[in-house]
Amino acid sequence: MNETNHSPPAGRPMGTTKAETRTVIVDGVREVYRVAGEGPFCPVHSGGPGVHPEYLRLPAPEEHLSMVHVDPVGSGDSDLLPDGDCSMARYARFAEAVLCDLAARTGYFLGHSHGGFVALQFAVDRPGRLEGLILYDTAAVYGRELMEAATEEMAAFVQRRPDRPGAVEAGRVWEAAVVSQTMEIADDEAHRRCLHGILPACFADCRRTVERVGEPTLRVTHDANRHPVGWDVRDRLGTIDEPALVIVGTYDFICPLSCAYETGTGPADSRLCELRASGHFGHVEEADEFTAAVLDFVHTTGKGIRT
């Protein structure tokens, strides 16, 4: 049974609008979220798990949507999951609790990377609950198969940038953390260093991005109690009736281009936006193109959207 507890509104700036901070409690576990903007609700679920969501703040769509920036359980200001159950179904349950807390009959769901896994699980488990899916640099499978594909893409990235120390280091960190698993990650700081080690590979051109918008940063909460998860909904994609926008960077190594094309063939009504000058963070590298794709999708699929 869901309990709901609202914290007082907090006027925390998020782009051009103020955000109201709220809390939903499911089975005694708090999940914090912040609402900013006007229009239909759109939960925004970041990657990870454990990565704090501020990197995915999207102020531009707030002119047309009520962006619901979730701190997924196990990250940000939300609680850890005490039993370590980080299944996609569990995350999807929390996402539905947020929509229920907002008294939202429907809404969009924007999921990035791991957040896209959650969005797909939500759509599979709760048909008809959403207005549409925005599946951003994600896949319909998670586990060994995806990691092997990402390892191949990482090797290709290092080969493209052999003169850049950051690229070589990214390949070394990936090998130690994912392939050989010889890197010890026991706390938040070690996890953060690992993420920042591979971060150059998350961009089509990290040097250009740093020159244009500054040094990218990520925060993460390390949960030693988190259980390993294997997940695959490829055989259920055809059951999704909601329209889907699949956004992918051509140079995304974590969820490669092939994953986007595979995901896009499932839902009956889907469209693909390939950002050809981006990696895993197209909302930073090609912000205008990313926003245009999202808003065009909303305007052509939604009802009563502000223009």
Rank of each mutant, 00 (worst) to 15 (best):
P9T: 01
P9G: 00
P13L: 10
M14E: 01
V24S: 01
V29K: 08
E31M: 14
R34P: 00
A36L: 05
G37F: 12
C42V: 11
C42H: 04
P43L: 08
G48D: 08
P53V: 13
E54L: 13
P61T: 07
L65S: 04
S66L: 02
V70E: 02
G76E: 07
S78C: 03
D79L: 10
L80G: 00
D83Q: 03
R90T: 06
Y91Q: 07
A92H: 04
L99S: 08
A103N: 15
T106Y: 00
F109E: 11
H112K: 09
H112G: 11
S113T: 12
H114E: 05
G115P: 04
G116T: 10
V118N: 00
L120Y: 03
D125I: 01
D125Q: 08
P127T: 06
P127V: 06
I134M: 14
D137C: 10
A139M: 05
R144Q: 11
E145Y: 00
M147A: 05
E148K: 00
T151C: 00
R164H: 08
P165M: 05
P165V: 09
R172Q: 14
W174H: 12
A176W: 04
M183H: 03
I185L: 09
I185W: 01
I185F: 05
A186K: 07
I198N: 00
E215V: 15
E215G: 02
E215I: 13
P216T: 14
P216K: 12
V220I: 15
V220Y: 08
H222Q: 01
D223G: 02
D223Q: 07
H227E: 14
P243G: 11
L245A: 01
L245N: 09
E262F: 10
P267H: 15
P267S: 15
D269V: 15
L272G: 05
R276G: 03
A277M: 05
G279W: 08
H280P: 09
F281E: 00
V284R: 05
A293V: 03
V298C: 00
T301M: 04
G302F: 09
G302I: 11
K303F: 05
K303V: 10
I305K: 07
R306S: 11
R306F: 08
T307Y: 10
